[in-house]
Amino acid sequence: MIRKFASVVLLLILGYAFYSLVAGFVPDGELNRSAAYYAENTARETGAQNIVTAIIVTYRGLDTLGEVTVLFLTAAIVAQVLSHSRAPAGTRGSGFLPAGELLETGTRLLVPLILLFGVYVFVNGHLTPGGGFQGGAILASAMLLLLLADPMRRFSHRLIAKVESISGLTYVALGVMGLVLAGGFLDNRILPLGQFGALFSAGAIPLIYSLIGLKVGAEFSSMLESLEETEDR
């Protein structure tokens, strides 16, 4: 009981702090300096329509590289932790019953469409909302549908690992090319900026975001798969 009381007191203190934050909040009338810089110069410097994409891929590209590395480490640790906990015999798989015919047929129809949509989302990341992370999650959800339709299905770990490492290496190589050919690490002006608003524009941004999409999709797929399967290899 005293534990519950202590946590309620703690939450009341936190709630008071949050209340004073909300009460004292005055929304900005205009953009602050860094935001105004991005708003003015994104189109000229990067050629991307979507400013959020320009920030993620170019202005804060090193952050994104670190983020993708963190995801890679997470996928690796999840696989390692789960592979050390061998399931007792006869209790393999996640316990889902085999799917019905409806789900299997629907999967066959939907998986190519979902993969296509994921690719569309990350190829158009510099023009429309969306990008590598969203597209990667959509690719992983196609894998999720396959896993649901056939719980016994096993993907090729080698394929997933290969996609992931090749796209990661190409990402770093593109960054180093920016260091050599343009203004700095992960600079997108190694390719011509092209016409503003076209699909092949904004320098290397579509290329880099597609690589991020493939890498994130592979990482999420391997996470899902290692949480789903109990079998060790």
Binding site: V52, T53, P129, F133, Q134, S141, L224
Partner: peptide, 17 residues
């Protein structure tokens, strides 16, 4: 952008994990 990410990752993949 954030809405797409949250819908795909936050409510889709997390639930299935």
């Amino acid at each position: 952008d954030v809405a797409m990410t949250e819908a795909a990752i936050g409510s889709g993949l997390t639930t299935f994990l």
